[in-house]
């Protein structure tokens, strides 16, 4: 049956993408990047700092411009930001003058949602905000202001706000990077749940390998100088994930492989000789 074909055109197509900063020193942030992200796929980007994972994400989001190659997202060439590609940031993105539910409804204030608006649309939108409050466990916080929330709660609001306009693609730039380990685990299961319910396509940038494997269907490992895609790993986990899987053989093997590869590509390693010399110098004084 044709309707069951999985091989629809990818949601995101990146072809020969390059970005060069021409400053006092020429920096190649991205070099010849090719990447396809399928509809309703969860892809995570990892890599050593300077590998261009955030830059790639921001280019997909239209917040930065590439200097060569092409990129098509949600069926259109990327020319700046748009409501089809919502972004969740690490922090400082909530509007402190709006309470939780007002933040979530922010996109309803935009003209993009006012054109040809009918009263039933408004009703649907109000119901959507309510559903998102429940989905993200924010019901009791609906009238609170962002400054009154913990970091984890703030990120729940940011995710709900990004989902409000039903974006085809959800871009997440280290959204849990500032959270403590326990909150992070809760957020991981939450975002997997959201992924399943909303059927969005998610591209997720992180420096945490465990997070990348636990969340993604594929882990894209990027390498620095110049920023490029090094290896793409398929994650051998079922769609329904739970925390115990982090101790599975297959999970740990993949984690080891990814961590080692990042170490190799980063060009940084612990200099035992130097450490030895330093401690000898310190003890002789």
């Amino acid at each position: 049956m044709a309707a069951l074909q999985v091989s629809a055109a990818p949601r995101i197509q990146v072809r020969g993408l390059g970005k060069v900063f021409d400053g006092e020193t020429r920096v190649v942030a991205l070099d010849a990047v090719d990447l396809d992200v399928a509809d309703n796929e969860f892809v995570t980007l990892v890599g050593a700092s300077g590998c261009g994972k955030s830059t790639l994400l921001r280019i997909i989001g239209g917040l930065e411009y590439h200097t060569s190659g092409e990129i098509v997202a949600a069926g259109r060439p990327v020319r700046g930001p748009g409501a089809d590609r919502a972004m969740v940031f690490q922090h400082y993105s909530l509007y402190p003058w709006l309470n939780v539910v007002e933040n979530i409804r922010f996109s309803r204030q935009l003209a993009i949602n006012r054109e040809h608006l009918t009263s039933s649309d408004v009703e649907v939108a109000m119901g959507r905000a309510d559903a998102l409050l429940d989905l993200m466990g924010l019901r009791s916080m609906a009238r609170a202001y962002p400054t009154q929330l913990s970091g984890g709660m703030q990120q729940r609001v940011a995710i709900a706000r990004a989902l409000m306009g039903r974006p085809e693609i959800l871009l997440m730039d280290e959204p849990f990077g500032a959270l403590d380990a326990q909150t992070r685990e809760v957020m991981h299961d939450l975002i997997r749940h959201v992924f399943k319910l909303e059927r969005a396509t998610i591209v997720f940038v992180t420096h945490d390998v465990e997070e990348a494997i636990y969340l993604g269907q594929r882990v894209v490992l990027m390498a620095p100088r110049p920023g490029r895609i090094d290896t793409i790993y398929d994650v051998p986990l079922p769609a329904q994930r739970h925390q115990d899987m982090k101790l599975d053989r297959a999970f740990l093997d993949l984690k080891k492989a990814v961590v080692e590869r990042i170490r190799e590509t980063s060009g940084m390693k612990t200099d035992f000789e130097l450490l030895d010399k330093l401690s000898r110098a310190a003890s002789s004084t």
Binding site: G62, G82, A83, R85, A86, F89, S93, L110, I112, P167
Partner: peptide, 12 residues
């Protein structure tokens, strides 16, 4: 990020 979040929600 406050500005960019609005832009990725479709703000002009």
């Amino acid at each position: 990020p406050q500005i960019e979040a609005a832009q990725t929600m479709g703000a002009t």
